[in-house]
């Protein structure tokens, strides 16, 4: 059971000219088993929403609420949110020099579960998760994301998604920069995660391409920090045909 509820969310960032409001009243409810796609043009605030959910210090919530199963998420620190069951697959995963993938994954798993994973099964689990996204298990001994190609970084995000097994996954433009093979591999990973049942997925994307592989239950069009239109998967088809033009010109 997991419900992520976002109500009238206003978020601003500090700029040289003072605070600038990016999100201007976002309402969104993701129930378990549901996949929501958020689509929108560049600069519409999609990534801001993703980072705000996971608690990036750059973003200030000025009003509104985010709750996970009724519990106030905004009161939680970044790591508390992750331990509560939120996961963010990042558009630009960060390199952490000198920290091996295996050490990182084990430390994260220990933090999420509150106890260290059993050594024997853990190594198998890690290798299996890497195999499933066609990542050479030699990556386990490399430093986190260091020297990884764009596609390898995204696959590494999916490995984490599968191993950490959150309640709600936020995927921030996980499809960007991927070739078609990598896109399929990443999409299959997300679909496996969904099949576990009870999982919420918030899929943020600029393109409709990934929605051919991951079928959303709901599509929200994001423009100028707000949801401009909502619908089912057919809305994605319409965006594919017509683009964002009508929303952008309406917003101006």
């Amino acid at each position: 059971m997991a419900t992520l509820e976002i109500k009238d969310l206003h978020v601003s960032v500090e700029t040289e000219d003072g605070p600038k409001e990016i999100l201007k009243g976002v309402n969104l409810t993701i129930k378990d088993g549901e996949t929501h796609a958020i689509m929108g043009p560049n600069g519409s605030g999609k990534s801001t929403l993703a980072y705000t959910i996971s608690g990036h210090p750059k973003y200030t919530v000025t009003s509104g609420s985010i709750t996970l199963d009724g519990v106030d998420v905004l009161e939680m620190s970044v790591d508390e949110r992750a331990r509560a069951g939120l996961f963010l697959a990042m558009q630009y995963p960060v390199e952490v020099p000198g920290v091996s993938v295996s050490n990182f994954l084990r430390t994260a798993k220990t933090a999420i579960d509150g106890e260290a994973p059993k050594l024997r099964t853990w190594v198998k689990d890690v290798n299996a998760a890497m195999d499933r996204v066609k990542m050479d298990t030699a990556f386990a001994s490399r430093n986190v994301n260091e020297g990884f190609s764009g596609g390898e970084k995204k696959r590494h995000e999916i490995v984490q998604l599968e191993l950490l097994d959150p309640k709600v996954a936020v995927l921030d433009e996980t499809d960007s920069g991927l070739d078609i093979d990598a896109l399929k591999i990443v999409s299959e990973g997300v679909n496996r995660f969904k099949e576990n049942g009870d999982k919420g997925v918030l899929l943020i994307t600029h393109y409709t391409r990934i929605l051919r592989y991951i079928t959303p239950d709901f599509v929200h069009v994001f423009v100028n920090g707000q949801v401009a239109e909502e619908g089912g998967p057919e809305l994605a088809d319409e965006l594919e045909a017509n683009g964002y033009d009508k929303y952008v010109s309406a917003a101006v």
């Binding site: 620190s77 970044v78 992750a82 994260a108």
Partner: peptide, 8 residues
């Protein structure tokens, strides 16, 4: 942020 977003 990256490490903490993984629960650490």
């Amino acid at each position: 942020f990256y490490l903490r977003s993984r629960g650490i």
